[in-house]
Nucleic acid binder design. Sequence first.
DNA 1: CAGTGAGCGAGCTTCCGCTTGACTT
Length: 781
Amino acid sequence: MPKNLVIVESPAKAKTIEKFLGKDFQVESSYGHIRDLVQKDMGVDVANNFAPNYAISSDKKDVVKKLKKLSKDAEMVWLASDEDREGEAIAWHLYEALELAPTNTNRITFSEITKKAIENSIQNPRRINTDLVNAQQARRVLDRLVGFELSPVLWKKIKAGLSAGRVQSVAVRLIVEREIEIRNFKAKTFYKVVAEFSNTKGKSFKAELNKKFDNESEARDFLDQCSKHKFQIDSLETKPAKKSPAAPFTTSTLQQEAARKLYFSVGQTMSVAQKLYEAGLITYMRTDSTNLSDDALAAASAEISEHYGKDFAKTRRFSTKTKGAQEAHEAVRPTYFNRHKAGTGDQQQRLYDLIWKRSIASQMSDAELERTVFRINGPGEKLEFVARGEVIKFEGFLKVYLEGTDDEDSDEQSGMLPASSKGEALSYSEIIATQRFSKHAPRFTEASLVKKLEELGIGRPSTYAPTISTIIKRQYVEKSELEGSKRDYLRMALSVDGLKEEKLQETTGADKNKLIPTDIGSVVNGFLTEHFHNILDYNFTASVEQKFDQIAQGQAEWTAMIDDFYQDFHPHLKEVEENSERATGERVLGEDPKSGKQVIARIGRYGPMIQIGDVEDEDKPRFASLRKGQSIDTISFEEAMELFKLPRELGEYQGEKVSANIGRFGPYVKFKSTFASIKEADGDDPMTIELERAIEIIDAKIKADKEKFIKVFDEAKPEIQVLNGRYGPYLKSGRKNFKLPKEIEDPAALTREEAEKIIEESAKKPAKSRARKSTKTKSKK
DNA sequence: CAGTGAGCGAGCTTCCGCTTGACTT
């Protein structure tokens, strides 16, 4: 039995460290936090100075049990969770939950996983830093108070099941406000002029005019002037320039770059990176630090020198500028720089490649360039064409890697300008004035939202991906494709043959993979920004972080800080709960010509809807759900009235009615008890679908259902059925499905008793969402 | 699941930050 028990947060880390420490040390993992505030009564006793009520998390009971046993047998327990606020709290929770004693407990930290760093930490143990733990408690309690008091106000004032929080609500606000900005944006038009010149040796190059014209006639006049103008090079200048590599990856920059270059979602990036980390190929992927360990710097330098030559190596240390960075880990880098390729499968290999290149490039020398600028006199005061050229003199880090850019149409000039001299006469082959339009700020992508949140210091590396999932799951925002519309623009080209004008067409407003607010998102954001402006303020997190820092420094009491906040927050919240109007985003669309009643669009109990008449009217109001792509903010009266044409009777099939409608899960056609989904993407629309096509879809559904069918136990009471699913046979009992145990070879031979037993067994097992009951079944065993 | 949109009321929903697998019909 080893004398020492070391506890870290991650099992992969545990494995690595165990190798460094030798046989006297057993290294185990806590799998992150082991305790959390209970859900009941917020888990905070507000009346009792905000006393937190912690409990072991249901999925951590086994871990804690095991660690407790091991700690009893060990001579010394080393709490080696991360060197930041959360890590310190994990150490403290372990200390409490494992019932450790001060005499045989040491707290150690290291921000890099190297033998030297770990051995050094063992030589320098310390106590748990109570101030830092209290800063974490303040953070935790504040988030709980805000989340668990604000959310119920939304249930009451808008719709059940909604949520609000310090991080997610700001994320939604960013997206909603950007969309409003885009909606209010009016594109300005202007004319951009680009010329293609040839010098006396017949070498050609492009140059852009230093002025944009406001309108067509100015641009035309200018081209007119050009036709009579003698062009020459007024000045030419060549300057050396440098480019430096970007810092190695943090979680946020990794997510951004993987989105730009590999088209990964942020969640995808994290799960692929997790696999690489577990395989020991990269360092920890949830980090806010750009720091590399000394060992890593040396290894990178050696690898670069060997592979590209000594000239290419340059050791650099990057400082982390991110607000609130805690730097408990290194930057994301390959574990071994001499592994140029690694990973299983295409995704892992591509992500590894990106990480390897970025890390290596960060330790390489600057690229040396030569930038050349030609200025060419134009026909008029201060009007000149400018040509830029760029030549790489020494590649440096560019040999390996260049950071991507979010700028959609950066016309980065590259290539050389032809050798020319000052005063040299130029002829033009074409001078083109093209009508252009100013652009609104881009919608957020997952990755650009993460970037923005990080800039604001909101959220942590471990929460960026889950935050995006949450706001999509709550249906505050969606990732959808916008079609865009056609727009005419004018192109005027001057050549030796004279001026040629063309009207061309382009698509504008098309967008994909962007985050777009839903009606619910907009209404929730409107409500929160109106009534809880301080929480939704972009600086709220930054200002509470300052207070957490003071607590961590021992300069403030955590309960006093929370009290200070709560004394304003809580009464105000109660006031809003009492007195504010329901927020439904209601908009009057017009009057129903038949009944003369008002037609309104609003958020209903089940989402965005249209309503004719009022609930207080004698005859009941009529309702209809909005369809995908429609919004209560933009739907027209005519579109709204169309919705009341559903459900539609299509006709009869085998003597039974066939109808089309839109249900909670989308458009469908119905025949007897069969509901068959129809796909608008395939050109089927419940508004226009014809009987013949509906029957096709229904027949296909009936056939598919038959193929799934294996057996039923009682024809008269077909409650329990055995069916074939995508992942093998399963039991269907009423509305619930149950997986068949692997032992069962022939599902068709299943008896009723066996089936009932399976259902009973499954009922005992914990459901995913309420795993609290799991301990009961497990303790029985 | 295949309608509903108010209100009644029990009991539920909900936060952020640390971690991995379990699971999907």
